[in-house]
Design a protein around this nucleic acid. Structure first.
Length: 277
DNA sequence: TTTGCAGCGAC
RNA sequence: GUUGUCGCUGCAAA
């Protein structure tokens, strides 16, 4: 596994992906081949550190940005080198877990869009599932349980070096105005791996919902379950609340969660107007 | 058919 | 200062 990670082609792809984004956050505009040859020695060192489990990620930079609702969100931005390594990790993990993911999860996945999620939501309503349980996970990214996540990945990936590296990325301290702060839970919002990790954890929720035969739609941490009566919706909502709290150790924002009817499907309206339809 | 640039949206 | 994944649109070039 760690070998696949450090393969030259995988690193090349990871580099291109990192550089493709925006101003490339501190990467100078070297050509890929230049960089790779320039990295021959630097990268060899990094590579051996990765393979021997000696690599320690640098702290992530904490940046507060304003959200649309007036509050702020804390980003955790890894260094360019760590973004590159995480991207490479993402590329080897993605195909493994993509095979596991359920069809009604739409966030952060290749060939899946918010628009498709809306179509599915409307289809559920059209089929008579008109009582909708809407659950809002409280600052989901910041609450992810490390042990649980590592356990889920261990089930599919046995390579100890890879798991150690991943653990170190999860535990990397965050630096806010020069102060280093330890992190005991959560995935940094800003790391290339984070969206995939969030799906890996919430895939357990998907599997539970599938097992119970529910109609549902999930887009990242935002999801709804579609039932045929208010009573069933209430019961399911409570049950899933307990599942999330105990099995996945995720707190729920009770004020923003609840049961509603299709005419105020807020997110569908948002997606319809924004994402067209 | 494909690639490069720019922008928009979701979380 | 501002990161990330995914999706879409537009333009340009062969």
């Amino acid at each position: 596994m760690i070998k696949a990670l450090t393969e030259r082609q995988n690193m090349r792809d990871a580099y291109q992906q990192v550089v493709r984004n925006k101003g490339a956050g501190g990467v100078d505009h070297m050509k890929v081949d230049d960089l790779l040859s320039h990295l021959t020695d630097t990268w060899a060192i990094t590579k051996s550190f990765l393979e021997e489990g000696k690599y320690t990620p640098q702290p992530i930079k904490g940046v507060e940005i304003p959200k649309s609702n007036g509050k702020t969100r804390l980003l955790g931005i890894p260094t360019v080198q760590d973004r590159l390594i995480q991207q490479a990790m993402c590329q080897v993990l993605n195909p493994i877990f993509e095979a596991e993911f359920q069809t009604h999860s739409y966030g952060f996945r290749p060939n899946k869009s918010a628009h498709q999620a809306v179509i599915q939501a409307l289809a559920n309503i059209n089929d008579g599932y008109q009582d909708i349980v809407d659950i809002d996970l409280k600052s989901f990214f910041d609450e992810v349980d490390h042990a649980l996540l590592l356990e889920l990945i261990h089930a599919k990936v046995k390579c100890p070096q890879f798991l150690l590296l991943l653990k170190r990325y999860l535990r990397a301290p965050i630096q806010i105005n020069g102060k280093l702060i330890r992190r005991r839970k959560g995935v940094p919002q800003g790391g290339p791996l984070s969206p995939l990790l969030s799906n890996i954890l919430l895939n357990e929720l998907d599997k539970e919902l599938e097992k119970r035969g529910h109609r549902y739609v999930r887009y990242a941490d935002d999801f709804s379950i579609y039932l045929k009566s208010k009573k069933a919706a209430k019961r399911t909502g409570n049950s899933i609340f307990l599942f999330l709290k105990h099995k996945l150790k995720l707190p729920i924002n009770k004020e923003k969660s609840g049961i509603r009817r299709p005419h105020n499907v807020s997110y569908a309206q948002k997606w319809c107007s924004g994402g067209r339809s």
